[in-house]
Deep mutational scan, measured.
Amino acid sequence: QTVHVKGVQYHFPNPEEAVKFALKVAKDLGGRVEFHGDEIHVE
């Protein structure tokens, strides 16, 4: 599972961890989380 944050990719073997990370980052940055297939983008 890959999380993209402002052009940087973070790889997580566990999808659940990836989602938790993405939600935390989005909250910290005041952004939103978008799901694109296997990828999660924080915009």
Rank of each mutant, 00 (worst) to 15 (best):
N14T: 14
N14I: 06
D38N: 14
L29R: 05
T2A: 06
K27L: 12
K27N: 12
V8S: 07
K27T: 10
R32H: 12
Y10H: 07
P13N: 14
G31T: 04
V3I: 03
N14C: 04
D28I: 13
K20N: 09
V25M: 14
V42F: 03
K20F: 08
E39H: 12
G30M: 08
V8N: 08
G31V: 06
A22K: 00
K6A: 14
V5E: 01
E34N: 10
R32Q: 08
Y10M: 04
L29Q: 07
V33E: 00
V33I: 13
F21Q: 02
I40C: 03
G30D: 08
V3Y: 00
F12E: 00
H36K: 13
V8H: 10
H36Q: 08
V42K: 01
V25G: 01
E39L: 07
P13L: 13
K6E: 11
I40Y: 05
V3R: 00
H41E: 03
A26I: 05
E34W: 14
K20W: 08
E17M: 10
V25F: 06
A18R: 00
V8K: 12
H36V: 13
V42L: 04
Y10N: 02
L23V: 11
K27E: 12
Y10P: 00
A26W: 03
V25P: 00
K20T: 08
F12H: 02
H11P: 04
K24M: 12
V33Q: 01
E43V: 15
H11W: 15
K20R: 12
R32P: 02
H41S: 06
F35P: 02
I40T: 02
P15Y: 15
L23T: 11
L23Y: 14
K6R: 12
V19N: 06
Y10E: 01
H4G: 03
H11K: 09
K24P: 01
K20I: 10
K24I: 08
A26Q: 04
N14D: 11
F12T: 00
E43N: 13
Q9G: 05
E16R: 08
I40V: 05
V25D: 01
P13S: 14
A26G: 03
G7I: 02
V3P: 00
I40W: 06
K24E: 13
V42R: 00
P15S: 13
F21V: 02
K20E: 12
F35G: 02
F21W: 13
V3N: 00
E17S: 09
F21N: 02
E17L: 11
T2Q: 04
A18H: 00
F21D: 02
P15L: 15
A26Y: 03
T2P: 03
E17F: 05
Y10I: 06
K6S: 14
V19K: 10
H41I: 11
A22S: 03
G7Y: 04
H41Y: 14
H11M: 08
I40H: 02
N14K: 05
R32K: 11
E39W: 08
V33F: 04
K27H: 13
V5I: 13
I40L: 08
D28N: 09
G30W: 06
E34P: 01
F35Q: 05
E39I: 12
E16V: 11
E17C: 05
Q1T: 15
A18K: 01
F12D: 00
A22I: 02
V19E: 08
H36L: 11
Q1L: 15
A22T: 00
N14M: 05
A26T: 03
T2G: 03
E39D: 12
L23E: 13
L23I: 13
L29Y: 10
D38S: 13
H11R: 09
K6V: 07
D28R: 11
E16Y: 11
L23R: 08
G30E: 06
Y10R: 03
V19H: 11
K24D: 10
K24Y: 07
N14S: 14
H36P: 03
G31M: 13
T2S: 08
N14F: 06
R32E: 05
K20Y: 08
G37H: 08
K24R: 10
P13T: 14
H36W: 12
H4V: 15
P13D: 14
I40E: 01
K6G: 15
K20S: 09
E43Q: 13
G31F: 11
H4I: 15
I40K: 01
G37W: 05
T2W: 09
F35D: 03
H4C: 07
K27C: 09
F35C: 05
H41P: 01
A18V: 00
F12S: 00
K27D: 09
Q9D: 07
V8L: 10
T2C: 03
D38I: 09
V19I: 15
I40A: 03
E39F: 08
E34C: 10
T2H: 05
T2V: 13
H41F: 14
V19W: 15
A18P: 00
D28T: 11
D28L: 13
F35T: 05
H41M: 08
F12P: 01
E16T: 10
P13A: 14
G31Y: 12
E34L: 13
H41L: 08
D28W: 10
G30F: 07
E34G: 06
Q1N: 14
Y10D: 00
V42T: 01
Q9M: 14
G37V: 05
E39Q: 13
E17G: 05
H4Q: 07
K6M: 15
E39Y: 08
F12N: 00
G30Y: 06
V42Y: 02
V25Q: 08
V5F: 10
D28Y: 11
G30S: 07
K6D: 15
V33C: 08
L29E: 06
Q9F: 09
D28P: 03
Q9A: 14
V42G: 01
G37K: 08
G31L: 13
A26M: 04
V25S: 06
K20Q: 12
G7Q: 05
F12I: 02
F12G: 00
F12L: 04
G7S: 05
Q9R: 12
Q1C: 13
D28F: 10
P13W: 11
V33Y: 03
K24G: 10
V19L: 15
H36E: 06
G31W: 13
V42H: 01
V5P: 00
K24L: 10
A26C: 05
